[in-house]
Design a protein around this nucleic acid. Structure first.
Lengths: 136, 136
DNA sequence: CTATAGCTTTACGTTTACGTCAACGTAATT
DNA sequence: AATTACGTTGACGTAAACGTAAAGCTATAG
């Protein structure tokens, strides 16, 4: 079944957002689901677009930015002499992402420090042990 | 000079934000600079706080979240029995950061793909060469 | 002395990303 | 026929993160 479709609440529950959110994305022109009467029918491609938008959101991109990244994939924008500007766009995006990775690593290092300070501050009195929390 | 101070515009220009932004952070209780008369005097610690807040922003954290992370470091919150909840907070933060790293890696992989498609689409006609853009 | 530069507070405006009703259509179930 | 579940279109509300004047101190250079 290559032409599977999804209802709006299918996608909402799959991605943990409200239907309002998905309709909002449509208002903003981020997706264009087909219609069955007045109901929205989402294709697999629509689904992926939404997924990518939410991925962008998780790393702090605006919806506009996410769409910008997603549109890098479709072959409409890669025509003409714009290939060069597209390449430099890619370069900018990459640099920002690398900076973000660095920021994340720095923050992770900070968390490690905090955690070891914590564990050091309570060397005894371990909390209630669960199946996942055995002494090794 | 261990008690170096900074003016608001010092920090604004250093971090590439407006003074309004820094005052806004103060309104929200994120920093508490001393005063010289009516002028704000930022300590090295204030400066670091702002820097960390902006780091959080870059990876999509809200100001509140950033402060939450920053406050993990100060020894005021790590007293009492709250150490356990603090540890689980750290755990949650870490998980989210790891997810973000994954998201970034996925996006980087996508950019690689786009770029190679681009370069493949123009095998000749290299653009104007600069000192940084020589053939190897 | 005045003007320029930099700082201040107060306060309303703006953008983004939705939340929250309200009021209604449609389709299946009871 | 009535309920229930799911969908729809407005339309207004809101929280976050600042932007943008307006109007006024203050210190120093010319």
């Amino acid at each position: 079944m290559p032409d599977k479709t999804y209802s709006i609440s299918d996608l909402a529950s799959e991605f943990g957002v409200t239907t309002r959110t998905i309709r909002f994305y449509e208002e903003k022109g981020l997706v264009h689901p087909r219609r069955d009467g007045q109901k929205r029918l989402y294709s697999a491609a629509d689904r992926v677009r939404i997924k990518l938008i939410l991925r962008g959101k998780r790393i702090g991109m605006s919806l506009k930015e996410s769409v910008e990244v997603i549109d890098l994939y479709d072959p409409e924008h890669n025509n003409e002499e714009q290939l060069h500007s597209l390449i430099s766009t890619v370069k900018e995006k990459r640099e920002r992402l690398l900076q973000q990775k660095k920021d994340i690593d720095d923050m992770l290092a900070g968390l490690d420090e905090v955690q070891s300070l914590c564990e050091q501050a309570l060397p005894e009195a371990p909390p209630a042990r669960t199946s996942k929390n055995r002494r090794r």
